[in-house]
Amino acid sequence: MLPVFDVVLAAAILVSAALALWVRDRIAAVSGFLVTGLLVSLSWLRLGAPDVALAEAAIGAGLTGALLLRSAHRIPCAPSKALPPSLWCAAGALAIAISGAIVWTVTSFGAAPVYPSLVADNLPESGAQNPVTAVLLNFRAWDTLLEIAVLFVALTVVIMVAPARPRTAPLGPLVQPFARVLLPLTVLIGGHLLWQGGHAPGGAFQAGAVLAGGAIALGLSGVIGSKLTRQNGLALLAIAGLAIFALAALAAEVLTGALLGYPAGEAKTWIIAIESALTLSIAATLFLLFFGPAERH
């Protein structure tokens, strides 16, 4: 029997998602999206996946919601013409078919999963005590490399499109104490999440999202937005994560004969170095995705 809290949580996710899709007001729709993201992160926590919950709350809800809020006033109004009933029926049938396929896939596997036991058996040689970090940066490091490549592609598209920069408000007397506290607090939390990722929930994506969130808040208040966003070095820092990850893969190939196959006994050192570079790169990438790259002259 499902706990009452989980039933209420699942219903709240469906209601907030429906509101985000149905409401006409853009700010209300983005608010519904933010609430949905926070509830989904809570559901991941209930499922015993705190790493995914942290990433969903920081990136899926926080920074993505900030990007949507920034873009809400620039997107043209959708036509008020109602869709024909045939399209609604087709969309509903497709949704039911996909849901049925997911339910059938989940329920058809009766045997115990093999992957968790394999991770647990090889965890001592992975260089990390946290199984999620071991998978992302050792056993399946290629997946993480591709995720960084996706961020690089997204930043490249933003540079090519060159969107208009958001207007920043001048720093007022009420924001000054907030700015003094936010920057060191963001650095401390980001560093803690980075170091904690080796043995507990955390890692580069969560730490980078926290650093980017703090930088975006300071940028919108006018503290760093007018200076930092015009530095080409920030774009180089954003690209450095993918470059260092790729160089690590090639160096491992030279030393061990396997791409991203770390030398024996040195996996922890390699993972810490890659995670540190990725943290700064992810933070710079997310910051530039919000504010845009340096202006061309």
Rank of each mutant, 00 (worst) to 15 (best):
A154T: 07
L14C: 10
V181D: 09
A57V: 12
L194G: 01
P293R: 07
W270A: 05
A141N: 15
I274K: 05
A169G: 14
L38Q: 08
V30A: 03
A97P: 00
G233H: 06
L255D: 04
N130L: 02
V35A: 14
F290A: 06
Q231N: 09
V175K: 07
P173C: 06
A111G: 01
A61G: 05
E56H: 01
T105A: 12
R70N: 02
A207I: 07
G214Y: 11
V187Y: 08
D6S: 08
T168W: 05
A12T: 01
S99T: 06
G241Y: 10
R74S: 06
A20V: 05
I239L: 15
K81Q: 12
P201C: 14
S226Y: 01
V114Y: 03
C89M: 11
V161Y: 10
I274A: 12
P166H: 15
F33H: 14
T133D: 13
G202R: 03
V161Q: 09
V15N: 04
A240K: 00
A11G: 15
S31G: 15
E275A: 12
F109T: 08
F109Y: 04
G203F: 03
L174A: 15
I224T: 03
A264I: 02
L146E: 00
K268T: 10
A258W: 07
T144C: 03
R26G: 08
A120W: 00
G172S: 12
L69S: 05
I159G: 09
L123P: 06
G213F: 10
A283H: 07
L9D: 06
V119E: 08
V181A: 08
V158S: 00
G32E: 14
K81M: 13
A49F: 10
A97S: 08
S86D: 11
A169N: 15
L67D: 01
L42V: 14
D143C: 01
